[in-house]
């Protein structure tokens, strides 16, 4: 879902950069108030893991492939969408500057879609579903819908940029990422959640499990 350079006019790129800087400010503020020293290794290893797994494109039908974005599960495990934003911002900057994966001018838009939308949708769906269903399906549904909605946002942005017609863009981006969300994001996030919950449930942040966070 990495938008390349040249897809979004520069004046629109600026808007996404501004949104990212504002959310980035709140993410840093979240870290200063909430990021426990003991969570730093988990945060770093999740970042490294997200980078590695994003290189693993899963084949889907129609001669297409896709990879997970990872921000929903990072946010769920660390107990805040801002954790997902911080990790994804690092990953996306390295992918863009070091490997040319995603453009530099559109970096703001890519962080907005995969970092901000992925984190907030995944985290709040998980948190909202948690009182009603078991945590495991809540992780699956949250992560699946997070990548799907990020793709929908991407299609809308590219329609505003005049690159894709809105309706066709929504249909193709939506269908491809719904499949990637089911077989990639949803399944892998659920496996990661179950694995960590089995070996070290104490590391999963309680931030999203009780009502009085912060």
């Amino acid at each position: 879902m990495h938008i390349p350079d040249g897809f979004i006019p520069l004046e629109q790129c600026v808007i996404y950069y501004i949104i990212v800087i504002i959310i980035g400010y709140f993410a840093v503020r979240w870290a200063k108030n909430n990021l426990d020293e003991r969570q730093i290794p988990l945060l770093s290893v999740l970042g490294a893991g997200v980078f590695a797994i994003m290189a693993l494109n899963i084949p889907i039908p129609w001669g297409t492939s896709g990879h997970m974005i990872g921000s929903p599960i990072v946010s769920i495990l660390l107990g805040s969408p801002y954790a997902g934003v911080l990790v994804m911002t690092v990953v996306l900057i390295i992918q863009s500057l070091a490997f040319g994966d995603g453009g530099v001018t559109v970096l703001g838009a890519n962080i907005f879609n995969m970092g901000i939308i992925g984190s907030f949708v995944g985290f709040y769906l998980f948190k909202g579903l948690k009182p009603f269903i078991h945590a495991t399906p809540a992780v699956f549904i949250g992560s699946f819908l997070a990548i799907f909605i990020a793709a929908i946002a991407c299609a809308v942005e590219l329609a505003i940029a005049g690159i894709f017609p809105l309706e066709d863009g929504l249909i193709f981006m939506g269908i491809y990422h719904a499949v990637i969300g089911l077989v990639g994001e949803g399944v892998i996030s659920t496996v990661v959640y179950i694995a960590i919950n089995n070996v070290r449930p104490d590391l999963i942040s309680k931030g999203c499990l009780d009502s009085n966070e912060n």
């Binding site: 492939s65 894709f164 193709f172 990422h177």
Partner: peptide, 19 residues
């Protein structure tokens, strides 16, 4: 990853190829 990853275009690239 480099051995297992699909080399097919990703969702966005595929959409761009069509549209």
């Amino acid at each position: 990853a480099p051995f297992l990853a699909s080399t097919n275009p990703d969702g966005l690239e595929s959409t761009a190829k069509k549209l």
